[in-house]
């Protein structure tokens, strides 16, 4: 078992995160598609699984040299394989993070929090969704806030990521009563209420995957 300093995300940590994300998406693909069939077009699980599998293959076949290259490779692969809004939005999240971190070889909590904030800002701009619209933003914005609070308080990285995952899960669950105002679910109007949003659900898996993969690597 690797023992790493609990303050930075390295290139290998980022790759481990995205491999774990693929495992989580595969495990939950049926559930994501089922959630999407209630209020969307019943393809979120299969689309995401196609994308994360391609990301995993790309990153494990040729290990990028720096953090920005990992995130950019992930973003471009998702854009070209997921299709639909999820491809553009998850792609934007990673491409904006990549721009922010550049050629850094490792990211501390503050830099990661800052990059994640830039990524989520890109998703908000691209999708024109705000918190409360019943979208992935409802899980991603609480993540940004939790990471920023943790970074400002000097909390160790593992604990920061766990706090972020808890915030993402709470944001995901808070989408249940909401009426969708963006995306395919918005066509349903009030009938979109009482359903968990599939985009917020996959976004929460993304954050949980990071918390889990990092906790395992520093254990």
């Amino acid at each position: 078992m690797l023992t790493l300093e609990d303050s930075r995300l390295t290139v290998d940590d980022l790759i481990a995160w995205l491999v774990r994300f693929d495992e989580q998406i595969v495990e939950h693909a049926e559930r994501l598609t089922e959630l999407d069939s209630a209020i969307g077009d019943a393809d979120h699980g299969t689309n995401m699984a196609r994308g994360t599998a391609a990301v995993r293959l790309r990153l494990t076949e040729a290990r990028p040299d720096d953090a920005g290259a990992v995130l950019k490779s992930c973003g471009m692969t998702l854009v070209s394989t997921v299709g639909g809004a999820s491809g553009s939005l998850y792609g934007t999240l990673f491409l904006e993070m990549a721009k922010r971190v550049g050629a850094a070889s490792e990211l501390d909590t503050t830099v990661f929090a800052d990059a994640f904030r830039a990524g989520v800002a890109g998703v908000v701009a691209r999708g024109r969704a705000e918190p409360g619209d019943k979208t992935m933003i409802d899980a991603l914005q609480p993540t940004v806030d939790a990471l920023s609070t943790a970074a400002a308080g000097g909390v160790p990285l593992t604990k920061s990521l766990q706090a972020a995952a808890a915030a993402a899960a709470a944001g995901r669950d808070a989408t249940i009563p909401l009426v969708a105002r963006r995306g395919r679910a918005s066509y349903l109007g009030d009938r979109s209420a009482d359903h968990l949003d599939p985009g917020a659900t996959s976004a929460a898996l993304l954050v949980q995957s990071l918390a889990d993969s990092h906790a395992e690597r520093v254990r």
Partner: peptide, 13 residues
Amino acid sequence: AGVDGHFGTDAAA
């Protein structure tokens, strides 16, 4: 048009 033989759009394309 399409992504990888599926319905969808690809910004890179």
